[in-house]
Design a protein around this nucleic acid. Sequence first.
RNA 1: GCCGGUGUAGCUCAGUUGGCUAGAGCAGCUGAUUUGUAAUCAGCAGGCCACGGGUUCGAAUCCUGUCACCGGCUCCA
Length: 634
Amino acid sequence: MQIKLPDNSLIELAGDANGLDAAAGIGPRLAKAAIAARVNGVLVDLSRSLDDGDRVDIVTIDSTEGLQVLRHSAAHVLADAVMQLYPGTRLGIGPATGDGFYYDFQLPLPVSDADLPAIESKMEEIVKEAASFERRELGREEAAGLFANQPFKLELLAEMPPDEAISIYANDGFTDLCRGPHLPDAGRLRAFKLLSVAGAYWRGNEKNPMLTRIYGTAFPTAKELDRHLENLKEAERRDHRLLGKQLDLFHIDDEVGAGLPLWHPKGALVRKIIEDFWRDAHLDNGYEMVMIPHIASAELWKTSGHWDFYRENMYSPMDIEGQEYIVKPMNCPGHIKIYKSRTRSYRELPIRWAELGTVYRYERSGVLHGLLRVRGFTQDDAHIFCRGDQLENEILAVIRFVLFMLRTFGFDQYDVFLSTRPEKSVGSDDNWARATEALRTALEKSELNFEIDPGEGVFYGPKIDLKIRDALGRAWQCTTIQVDFNLPERFDVTYIGEDNREHRPIMIHRALLGSLERFMGCLIEHYAGAFPLWLAPVQAVILPVADRHIDYAGQVAARLRQEGIRIELDYSKESVGKKIRNAEVDKVPYMLVVGDREEDAGDVSVRSYAEGDLGEQPVDELVADLARQVEEKR
RNA sequence: GCCGGUGUAGCUCAGUUGGCUAGAGCAGCUGAUUUGUAAUCAGCAGGCCACGGGUUCGAAUCCUGUCACCGGCUCCA
């Protein structure tokens, strides 16, 4: 028989040939690296027999798909080991993930990280046996019989479409309901490691039982595994919670409360720089600033719908002379009230109102996470009121604006999502459809790659989200752009049109950075704490070699301060080496050493955090250089 | 909120099967040293062992409740 390869060439194979034979037919090295095959577009085992005319693509272990197969097989071996060590375990599911795999179990007793080495050893034993993964297709009844003691598997079985073939994979006496494909045998699993154990609801639903999830990862070689583990360690060092402490930027205090960060002088200074830039950029982009109070009468939240649709995230009302007031979880109703303070003409639109608005939301204790998930935070919020014919342009302008902002802070990688109508929501189907379409069109025109996030919209409208990844690769939603037909209706927001009649404006909610807290958390990790010059709280530290240089150091400091450079003078009685070390640890962009030589020449010796010793330089030259870098936001 | 883990000095961590006055390094303070590109030396001070309740002759250590934190899940900017 003949099969067709991806380059459209044909090769001749024996009549009973399988994927491995095909790989061998192409070349012995490919046969060695092969672990699965894609036959007519479907990923299958190498052992699957081929038919005449099949299009065959050999999947190797180092490809993305190959890694998935490898890790999925690792999950099976993990399940095998756990079943042997903890008889009576019930199996959930065990897929490959982006950088590893996991398997969910209902165990007869609690398992912790401390048990992972034992499970790993058992896995090693299984791998040593190198038993092959045997696929078998079987009938529904037989499968149900086989998994009679596995209620979760039965549940999955019952929900499989009637026309779908049911397959199981057996390896080393362990059998799992599985679509496959798998490695030819478990011996191919050469480098794996179990990483952590965590709870996970069965099928991701908190009404279901909590299973124990064991996470691990696997790579083709030990070297690649080691590199991955090294990367994880490096990521831990970039953790903003660690750096926030080390660099004295912020802390979260038990007695103040969970999820309520306190900004120290240096953190507050970085934040101030970001905020100044943000305000200037907004004024440049046609926004005006507004400000609203932090609490508002419960009536406002009833009108807005938050009282009904957002209550679980709002703090309890407080009683003020018999009236209920609520700490704001969002800024929109306040901005709407400013809009409604007088009659608006169509000529005024679009109105763009921005505010660094602090909001408070109740977050369940388990979700709090450093600065990335807190209970009180400042959104870089704005609301745009516009006519229908202006909507698309406004959204496009916001997208352009946000890309400019993120790029300025060094972010050029983010995931873009279009989130559609959630279950709990308000507004007509028609409005939701129009709003969703407007966002989609704008995304397409901006040529951004995006994914649909079904049901993830806010209760009043669909949204575009941009997510930034933290040091550990976890995605955090920062930017959000939301179209809202609903709040203008609830508040009866209007403008007078050309026709002298009342019309309903459309509202766009948008936050570019998301919240200052989350954004700064991401920023700290992005720069690993070493802020670029324009953002660094201390831009340069002056290090006199000996006490007799303090006067000159003071003159240099005064000169730099005059130019707006943020300077510290280290006149501690330490050695130069120690002063440099301290500045390095604080990740100060520039260290300026001044001794006899510099004093005589009117110079400074420049050492940069990024590049090390740069040699002597006249002070004026340095000032010009620093000023240019700050100007260019580097 | 749920599952598992953790909580000792400002920070990073020791602290044996429950048993002397709970230790170290860094940071801090004092003194000496005046230093040339990642740690000069010495001394001093610093602890309600997260918090509450219990077991015990005796608890940092064992049990229990609360709080916080860490990894996930669910939820979100």
